[in-house]
Design a protein around this nucleic acid. Structure first.
Length: 882
RNA sequence: GCCCGGUUAGCUCAGUGGUAGAGCGUUUCCUUGACAUGGAAAAGGCCGUGGGUUCAAUCCCCUCACCGGGCACCA
């Protein structure tokens, strides 16, 4: 197979995904042995791939591919979420463009429209995940509203209902007037906004001689006030408790009540109480039996109870109320005020707290169980810093409002008996009941509401495996191994899955939760369409290649930290892809007439061979460890450095000294090591860069003694202690040290690479005796530092430098500028003086000597010894120069 | 108000109880038999402040400052 000069993402990616899929690699064979399972956080059917998805799914794919290669029975279950409000909003928007509302269509026609839309654009994102290389088992693809998932939802609801955990009743909920539905507390976002605080006088008694001043950020609600509350211990108002106030702009009288919820130190210490429109006031109202006056309706408009303001939008009413209060002298003052506005997480409309009839799921018991599962280690969170906020949320949980007044979703499986609404209890049933069990009537009507989309998401790890049936999948893959997700849905989704999993399967849905960061832009801002700072992953794939995108993602994914993605990171990754590409190309170009064979025996391995194999072992070990501890950035870094620095910069270059000579007897051995190390590196890189590694692996297969038909199913490299060789590693370090010293010398003395020079190396360190007699070492030094010959004696006229084990002389006829040379050596000398002085200082310290570990003391002694030695040599040469 | 994270080279960021690294950028040199999406060399940092623990702190503990984020409250 021909490899072009430049890494070409498009061509090198194209063939492989279909191959993997057609061969059935994504679908595990059931049977004995360890299993590894991941269930995808299902993207909404409204979605198309954004950076967050790209990151999330790249990480899942890395883990999936790793475990598949490690031989686990591995499954990654894909699917999509119907997305409740979010998706309904999208379609409603389309309707609005046609001048219609969902009410115009009616429920059935509207749902038909929803399904049609879902059909058309539903699985776009799953197609895009394929492009990302996601090795999902597509035969198991699910959708939260398909029949299997819906059945799980109905079963869960009915069971919870029967256990008495689900109840219905009028409560104050967060109401979105635009989405026209209740929202759970957690679906409300708080955002700081500039606002005003209006101070209003409420006159005491009909004459209004004296008054109580209250402050509010929502003056329109005063029309619904049914009391003013003060703290019972507040001396200012003690005498007034029980008295009556005249409510301005109305003809109503309201009482002054005492309630501990009032903070006497805030404002005037008196609070207007609107039980129908504020959660705190609702509670105060309950305690004092205050009536509700509803002045704002579900559309966000003023009701008839608002008198003259009826029919006005709530914000328009606010303006009018303020104006009227001012005109009538009830407005004392207005001040600027920063307030956190509660907004809908789907449409950012300001939430209106309203009382309505809703379904709730009791959370306390389930939350306690979920918290215990994490406290006793059944489920671990990575990084662990998320554990505390997670537990804190569970510990302070409130009941979950699970009903939504929209149409797109799972209809609540509850029927009401129409014949005698009051007396027959509601019927919860998985299938439409034939009749009312109480009275036998067949006139039943189903609850109009649908379930919160997170209710079905919460059952996702169960429903994708076929629950409530006791399926093989469920037995094999539940609990799953890990959930990979961002922290923004830790409570919204993760906690719910844990609670429901424990409830219905008696076990957590995943052993690990791996929380990754949020993708931010270069300025650290969250990417959002409105800010216009989104990077389109599809564009990046086109421009830099899928593998570059994935590598950039993995490299930036530091545990516990959000990540800033910029063009630089993609460029760096793309360049690495090209480097790997060309390293493979080089190896392949040098494999003519090569017969695949086993690695040469140790005695036939050169120093460089032993070193690169040693380094490879260390890399295998560290990469495996890093991936296993959810640190893809560390794994990427290790592989980047191994491939680029160790393999390309050194090993490949050194191998040229052999490969350039077609007659060399060590040629085959060198080719074997080159191939062996490269193919191992390809396997290590495969989870992160699946396409390119597959492409290169296929190109290398003819030259491998053993291979699998795809790198995807090749075994994950294992650490083999026989390759561990620290002595060779140390020797190689010295060789590198020499090469670098010579290069530096040439560069500093401005000797052109074209100028041929000879070199004499004197190594006095007994540990490295004979090292420079080694054929390959000599050849490498010549080649890497552009030396003509290695002489056996020092040249007449020379440049001089030192390395960690000895002295280096380079012939330089007519090139030596004594002044410059002295200056250079003096500078070196001065640096050495500093380091040795520091070492001497430390070694004089009794405390250090008695406390520090032996290796540390030895290390400093060695530094000192070498430093002194080098200084001596330099001194000697300086004398020679004068 | 509470909690979490950040503060390291010009920029973007890694990292370690033994005075620091990468990529980009800069300077100098090189188109040499994979790669100019490349190679070689260099310059550049008292690792935010003030304390403490330790033989030794950029790293651990405390304080403060600034920047993010989350939670609660919000009349």
């Amino acid at each position: 197979m021909e490899i072009p000069k430049l890494y070409t993402p498009a061509e090198s990616e194209a063939p492989w995904y279909p191959l993997w899929e057609n061969r059935g690699y994504f679908t595990p064979k059931l049977g004995p042995g360890p299993s590894y399972s991941i269930v995808i956080p299902p993207p909404n059917v409204t979605g198309s791939l954004h950076m967050g998805h790209a990151l999330n799914n790249t990480l899942q794919d890395i883990l999936t591919r790793l475990h598949r290669m490690q031989g686990d029975r591995t499954v990654w279950v894909p699917g999509t979420d119907h997305g409740g409000i979010a998706t309904q909003n999208v379609v409603e928007k389309l309707l609005r463009a046609e001048g219609k509302t969902r009410q115009d269509l009616g429920r059935d026609a509207f749902l038909e429209r929803m399904w049609k839309w879902r059909q058309e654009s539903g699985d776009t994102i799953l197609m895009q995940l394929r492009r990302l290389g996601a090795s999902c088992d597509w035969t198991r693809t699910r959708f939260t509203m398909d029949e299997e998932c819906s059945r799980a939802v109905r079963r869960a609801f009915v069971e919870l209902f029967k256990m008495g955990l689900i109840y219905r009743g009028p409560r104050m909920v967060n109401w979105c007037p635009r989405c026209h539905t209740a929202l759970a507390d957690i679906e409300v976002e708080h955002e700081e906004r500039a606002g005003k605080l209006w101070h209003i006088k409420y006159p005491l008694g009909p004459k209004g001689q004296s008054y109580i001043e209250v402050a509010t950020t929502r003056p329109e609600t005063m029309l619904g006030d049914t009391a003013v509350a003060v703290n019972p211990d507040d001396e200012r108002y003690k005498g007034l408790i029980g008295k009556t106030l005249q409510l301005p702009l109305t003809d109503r009288q309201i009482p002054i009540v005492a309630d501990a919820a009032v903070d006497a130190s805030f404002g005037t210490g008196a609070v207007k109480v609107t039980p129908a429109h504020d959660p705190t006031d609702f509670e105060i109202g309950e305690r004092h039996g205050l009536p509700h006056v509803v002045v704002i309706n579900f559309e966000g408009k003023m009701t008839d109870a608002a008198g003259a303001y009826a029919g006005l939008d709530r914000f328009e009413a606010r303006k009018r109320v303020v104006a009227d209060l001012e005109a009538q002298g009830w407005l004392n003052k207005t001040e600027d005020y920063r307030l956190s506005a509660a907004t809908c997480y789907r449409c950012s409309t300001i939430i209106e707290p309203l009382v309505s009839e809703q379904w709730f799921l009791k959370m306390k018991g389930m939350a306690e169980r979920a918290a215990a599962a994490t406290r006793d280690g059944q489920m671990k969170i990575f990084p662990s810093s998320w554990e505390r906020p997670y537990l804190n949320w569970l510990d302070n949980i409130k009941d979950w409002c699970i009903s939504r007044q929209i149409w797109w979703g799972h209809r609540i499986p509850v029927w009401y008996c129409r014949s005698s609404l009051k007396t027959c209890p509601p019927i919860a049933s998985e299938e439409p009941p034939k009749g009312c069990p109480q009275c036998g009537s067949t006139e039943l009507s189903q609850d109009e509401d649908v379930l919160d989309t997170w209710f079905s998401s919460g059952l996702w790890p169960l429903s994708v495996f076929g629950w409530p049936d006791e399926t093989e999948d469920l037995k094999t893959f539940y609990p799953t191994s890990v959930l990979v997700t961002g922290h923004e849905i830790l409570y919204l989704w993760v906690a719910r899955m844990v609670m429901l999993g424990l409830q219905f399967r008696n076990d957590v849905p995943f052993r690990h939760v791996y929380i990754h960061g949020i993708v931010r832009d270069k300025q650290g801002k969250k990417m959002s369409k409105s800010l216009g700072n989104v990077i389109d992953p599809l564009e990046i794939m086109k421009q830099f290649g899928t593998d570059a995108l994935r590598l950039a993602m993995a490299s930036s994914s530091i545990p516990g930290r959000d990540m800033q993605m910029s063009n630089d990171s993609f460029l760096k990754a793309r360049n690495f892809a090209n480097k790997l590409w060309n390293a493979s190309r080089f190896v392949q170009m040098n494999l003519e007439n090569y017969t695949p064979q086993a690695l040469p025996p140790v005695k036939d391995r050169t120093l460089a061979d032993r070193w690169i194999l040693h380094d490879l072992q260390a890399t295998i070990s560290a990469v495996t460890e890093a991936l296993g501890s959810y640190n893809p950035a560390e794994a990427s870094r290790l592989l980047y450095e191994f491939v680029w620095n160790s393999y390309c910069d050194w090993y490949l270059e050194i191998s040229k000294t052999v490969l350039m000579d077609p007659q060399s007897p060590s040629r085959a051995a060198k080719q074997t090591v080159l191939v062996e190390v490269l193919q191992t590196a390809l396997r290590l890189l495969h989870p992160i860069m699946p396409y390119e590694t597959e492409h290169l692996y296929q190109a290398l297969r003819p030259f491998m003694q053993e291979s699998t038909e795809s790198v995807m199913i090749a075994p994950w490299p294992l650490v083999d202690p026989q390759f561990s060789d620290p002595v060779s590693a140390q020797k190689m370090l010295l060789v590198q040290n020499v090469v670098e010293a010579i290069r530096r010398l040439r560069s500093e003395s401005q000797i052109s690479p074209a100028v041929k020079v000879d070199c004499y190396i004197q190594c006095t360190d007994p540990r490295f005796a004979g090292l420079f007699g080694d054929l390959e070492v000599r050849a490498s030094i010549l080649f890497l530092s552009k030396i003509e010959t290695l002489a056996s004696t020092a040249p007449q006229e020379y440049l001089f430098t030192v390395f960690d084990g000895g002295e280096i002389y380079i012939s330089a006829q007519g090139l030596v500028d004594k002044e410059k040379e002295r200056a250079r050596l003096k500078k070196n000398y001065a640096q050495l003086e500093q380091t040795t002085a520091r070492a001497e200082q430390i070694l004089k310290d009794e405390n250090f000597l008695s406390h520090a570990p032996k290796e540390e003391i030895d290390r400093i002694r060695e530094t000192l010894r070498q430093g002194r030695q080098k200084m001596e040599w330099i001194q000697k040469n300086l004398q020679g120069l004068s």
